[in-house]
């Protein structure tokens, strides 16, 4: 039995028929073709599928699709400005080698974005805590943390 849900996706109101068994990740990737959100494990352990729902970073692979009703969902595709200008986080990841293979990057940026929206001047510990659920095998997190720090600096100005 399909069900219709209405929510805001990357600042646009969407109405869509969903199967109640779907996850938000499935809806984003398979229906909206927003494939920047990755599935790294499918069981909420790696963070590659992180999106922002009503300001909080969540694992979309565990998020029941019906819960999205009425919510405000932001994916990596909704992070840059509408003219394509990169968000300071995206630019900082490029500038500071915060991205290597890139598979964790979408989720990392979403977790960091949720943090910076709540706390504009985060400590290193805040940053590390915010991305603790996002596994990266390439970077050792060092340049990811530096990227988030630099983005926060740039956003303050």
């Amino acid at each position: 039995m399909k069900k219709e849900i209405t929510f805001t996706l990357n600042n646009e109101k969407v109405v869509v028929e969903v199967d109640p068994g779907w996850t938000l990740l499935y809806l984003l990737r398979e229906v909206f073709e927003l494939t920047g959100t990755k599935e790294g494990c499918g069981v909420g352990e790696c963070g590659a599928c992180t999106v922002i729902v009503d300001g909080d970073a969540v694992s979309s692979c565990l998020y029941p699709v019906l819960e999205a009703e009425g919510k405000n969902v932001i994916t990596i595709e909704g992070v840059a400005a509408s003219d394509g200008t990169l968000h300071p986080l995206q630019q900082a990841f490029i500038d500071n080698n915060g991205v290597q293979c890139g598979y964790c990057t979408s989720g990392m940026i979403m977790s960091a974005k949720a943090l910076l929206e709540k706390k504009a001047v985060p400590t290193e510990e805040d940053i590390r805590t915010s991305i603790a659920g996002n596994i990266c095998r390439c970077t050792g997190y060092v340049q990811i943390v530096e990227s988030v720090q630099q983005a926060a600096e740039r956003m303050k100005k």
Binding site: R29, I76, E77, Q90, I94, D95, T105
Partner: peptide
């Protein structure tokens, strides 16, 4: 020089095509 990884900007915007998207 620390040239930025501009060639890989698609990785920060979600546009990069991995096996899942091919």
């Amino acid at each position: 020089k620390n040239i930025p990884r501009t060639a890989e900007t698609d990785k920060v915007t979600g546009r990069a095509v991995y096996m899942d998207e091919y």
